[in-house]
Simulated assay, not measured.
Amino acid sequence: MPKFAFVYHGGGMPETPEEGAKVMAAWTAWYGNMGESLVDGGAPVAQSHTVSADGVVENGGANPVSGYTIVSADDYAAACEMAKGCPMVQDGSGSVEVAQLVDMG
Rank of each mutant, 00 (worst) to 15 (best):
S66D: 07
E81T: 10
E15N: 09
E97R: 08
E36L: 05
M34W: 00
S66Y: 03
T28F: 05
V7F: 03
V96F: 07
D91A: 06
V45C: 09
V89I: 13
A46I: 13
M13Q: 15
S95M: 10
G94I: 03
G41T: 06
S66W: 03
S52Y: 11
E58P: 04
E36F: 01
E19M: 12
A21S: 14
A83Q: 01
H9M: 07
P17L: 09
A29M: 05
S52T: 15
V51H: 05
A99C: 11
A21R: 15
S93I: 12
P14T: 12
T50W: 06
Q90C: 11
P87H: 06
V71I: 10
T69L: 06
G41C: 11
G12N: 07
S93F: 10
P64Q: 01
N33H: 08
V51P: 07
T16K: 04
V51R: 10
G42M: 01
G10M: 09
M24N: 13
S95H: 07
S95D: 11
N33G: 13
C86S: 15
S52L: 15
Q47L: 15
D40K: 04
G94F: 03
G20T: 12
A53Q: 13
T28E: 11
E15S: 13
C86A: 15
G41D: 08
A29I: 04
A25W: 00
Q100A: 14
E97M: 09
A5T: 13
Q47P: 15
Q100T: 13
V56L: 15
G42E: 02
G35R: 03
G42P: 03
C80M: 15
A79Q: 00
A77P: 04
D54V: 10
V23R: 08
T69I: 10
E36N: 11
